[in-house]
Amino acid sequence: MEKTWNNKAWFLVLPVLVLVAFSAVIPLMTVVNYSVQDTFGNNVFFWAGTEWFEELLHSDRFWEAMLRNLVFSFIILAIEVPLGIFIALNMPKKGWAVPVCLVLMALPLLIPWNVVGTIWQVFGRNDIGLFGYYVNALGINYNYVQDPIDAWVTVIIMDVWHWTSLVVLLCYAGLVSIPDAFYQAAKIDGASRWAVFRYIQLPKMQRVLLIAVLLRFMDSFMIYTEPFVVTGGGPGNSTTFLSIDLVKTALGQFDLGPAAAMSLVYFLIILLLSWVFYTVMTNYDAER
């Protein structure tokens, strides 16, 4: 649609601008202010310069949390994206089964995040949880409260359970836009299943897949509630991701300076990712 140039449209955007400025710009300015100062409470601040940033950039704790978060994001992407594509390819294309599948698959997406945590906290327990009980009954020693690897497995399975459906739904949205005639033509040409996927389905899904990968990466990069409820960041620090670490520093210990410095570094990374996301999407839309 051809849009007309009209700067009066700013008046329509003004309410959003005021509201989001209040709830985003003021807090961010405060974070910047805190990040260069030290405080002993009562809103008395001392200039600290770049001390907190230096401390942060040289702290193992921060880099470990960052590394953990990146490893986590890559693992869940490596599982969720292929699995999501596979399930989307096997979804029914028409008939009564379509809405039923959509509704049932979307169910985990709409569960409050802390309840997702609660569900898996219970489900994985080896005394009262179905999953934990039967895994142990199979002879595998599984206890996510004490064993870091088991904790990781639990958090990853939980995330796959929670979010794979999003990849499925996005891929499915891309797949249903392919006209039936394309498949018929491919059949008549004798195209293999792989060729159909590679030359018809994958190109059609490219855009939604990009959205899915970027969304999943960003959401997993700021994951907080689910692992917090299940493991509380433990055992030890083994599942302490960036957000959990930040909340510990900011609200647990109320270390304003270090927390603010960490927030800023974190936010800058997210800003870069958002820019990639936005650029990819707008360029895609422009090319079409």
Binding site: A9, V13, A24, I26, T30, M218, L246, S263, I270, T282
Partner: peptide
């Protein structure tokens, strides 16, 4: 959806960054 105006694309992007920002960053200043 209807108009182009000064800085519209950047405003749209700025809104997106708020959706993408980790709540943990905003918890303390909030």
């Amino acid at each position: 959806s209807r108009y182009r105006f000064l800085g519209d694309k950047h405003l749209f992007f700025w809104l997106l960054t708020n959706r993408m920002a980790p709540p943990a960053v905003f918890a303390l200043p909030f």
